[in-house]
Design a protein around this nucleic acid. Structure first.
Length: 88
DNA sequence: CGTATGACGTGCA
DNA sequence: GTGCACGCCATAC
């Protein structure tokens, strides 16, 4: 567990229900605005259910990816009230 | 330590 | 709007 990972987890956990954040936003909040790649990498390896990684989407509005499948991510977002027919 | 990879982003044709 | 290339950071090998 590195400090960066801890920060990312903490930030993602603090994402309110019904809201979404972009990878760049998370990286910026973590103090590394240009580490959005690392953010995705960490979330990809992170299988911790306490982390709502499904609330992290791409800056262009795309769903992005998900550990358990992008389809489940889209479904979760729909359940939380995020408007996403398919992609944007 | 150097290379390769990845849930990305931006710029340019 | 689409496609390609470059950059940037952390992790794995």
């Amino acid at each position: 567990m590195t400090e960066f990972q801890h920060k990312i987890h903490d930030i993602v956990i603090k994402i309110p229900k019904g809201s979404v954040v972009t990878y760049k936003e998370v990286a910026q909040l973590a103090g590394r605005p240009k580490a959005y790649r690392a953010v995705g990498n960490i979330l990809n390896k992170n299988y911790n259910p306490v982390i709502p990684c499904h609330r992290v989407i791409r800056s262009n509005g795309e769903i992005g990816g998900y550990n358990k499948g992008s389809d489940l991510k889209r479904k979760k977002l729909l359940t939380e009230g995020i408007i996403c027919g398919k992609i944007i």
